[in-house]
Simulated assay, not measured.
Amino acid sequence: MQAALEDAGIMIGRSLRHASRGLDTLLIGVLLPVLLLLLYVYVFGGAIAPDGRYLTYVVPGIVLLCAGYGAAGIAVPVANDMTTGVIDRFRSLPILPSAVLIGHISASVIRNLSSTMLVLAVAFAIGFRPVAGPVEWLIALTVLTLFIVAMSWVAVCFGLIASSVESASSFSFVILFLPYLSSAFVPVETMPAVLRGFAAHQPLTPMIETLRGLMIGTPVAGQAWVAVAWFGAILIVGYAIAGRLFARRTAR
């Protein structure tokens, strides 16, 4: 058990070091969330809600969009590991094989929670005033971590089946697009009927509404349980598929 934890710790450190050395990763992980927040508040916010309330509405959606986009990004380093022969070198060492994936997942959680804190700090600086207390913030952090872990395992699956690093990167753009078809930026009921059904029933909407309710006090109702059910199932399925794909790829 101790050896497995040590192996995982080494791989977590490796993944974090790789992320810190990549300028594009730092720009996407740190600047993109802030730029998106400022774009929606100051460029679109005046047209959507001239009284300034749009900042309060949009922050949970921006948080989820950036966390999802960041989590999806680990498809690239996973694909890089699988296509450059690094995994073959790791197999020759006395380390736990799954430590490689655990390192990627753990680094994703740490990196994306850090970028979330940055987004929230900027939001506070420009006027965001949530009503959440310590309990609500703890629950929000828990469900956000569930979301990041679930999306990270899905990203691992894409990284394992990708034939190249370039093809693995396309998964990030899919995840970047999905929040626009949810309640992240506008209420679902304002959408055309053809989009409303999808937006109301896709998994991102209950997660966003849960975060919004916890942060600013809007009704959550059963949205939290729906969000947990969705992303708990996604996590389990993603983990199972990633485990089988990794075993198949490393058995060669």
Rank of each mutant, 00 (worst) to 15 (best):
P192S: 08
F231H: 06
L32V: 15
R248M: 06
A19G: 05
G46F: 09
F158R: 07
V188Q: 10
G213W: 12
F147R: 01
I12G: 11
R21K: 13
V109W: 07
L181I: 02
I95C: 06
A242G: 10
I126Q: 12
L138E: 06
V154N: 12
A49R: 09
I74D: 04
A99L: 11
N80P: 02
S167R: 11
T250D: 03
L138P: 06
V156S: 12
A224L: 04
R196L: 12
G45S: 13
L204K: 03
L35M: 08
I175L: 03
V188K: 13
N80E: 12
G61P: 03
I10R: 13
E209F: 11
A125I: 00
F128L: 09
P203E: 06
F198M: 04
R21N: 11
G232E: 14
R53F: 13
H104A: 04
T84N: 14
P203Q: 06
V131W: 09
F147P: 00
S114Q: 02
C157A: 10
D81K: 05
Y54M: 05
S167G: 01
N80A: 08
H18K: 13
A79V: 01
S169M: 00
I161L: 08
L5P: 00
G73W: 05
V194N: 08
G213F: 08
I126M: 09
A140M: 09
F173R: 06
I148S: 08
L38R: 14
I148L: 07
T56P: 08
V58Q: 03
I161W: 04
G85N: 09
V59L: 03
R252K: 07
P206H: 14
A162W: 11
T25D: 09
A224V: 04
L26N: 14
R252S: 08
L35G: 12
F173K: 03
P203F: 01
T84A: 13
L118T: 06
R89H: 02
A233V: 10
P192Y: 00
P97L: 12
A251S: 09
R252Q: 12
I105D: 10
L214N: 04
D81R: 05
I74C: 06
A199G: 05
L93Y: 08
R252I: 10
Y40K: 14
T25L: 05
E189A: 10
R14K: 07
V226N: 03
A72M: 10
V59Q: 05
G159L: 04
V109H: 05
G127V: 05
P219I: 01
T190G: 10
N112Y: 12
L16I: 06
G232Y: 11
R244D: 03
M117L: 15
L32T: 15
E6M: 10
I28V: 14
L96Y: 02
S167F: 07
E136Y: 10
A67N: 09
Q223C: 02
Y239R: 12
D51E: 09
L23W: 15
V228C: 01
I234Y: 00
A47I: 10
V165Y: 08
R244T: 07
V220Y: 03
V156Q: 15
V143S: 02
V76D: 04
S106E: 05
G73V: 14
S152M: 05
S152C: 06
L16Q: 01
C66A: 07
I62C: 01
A121V: 02
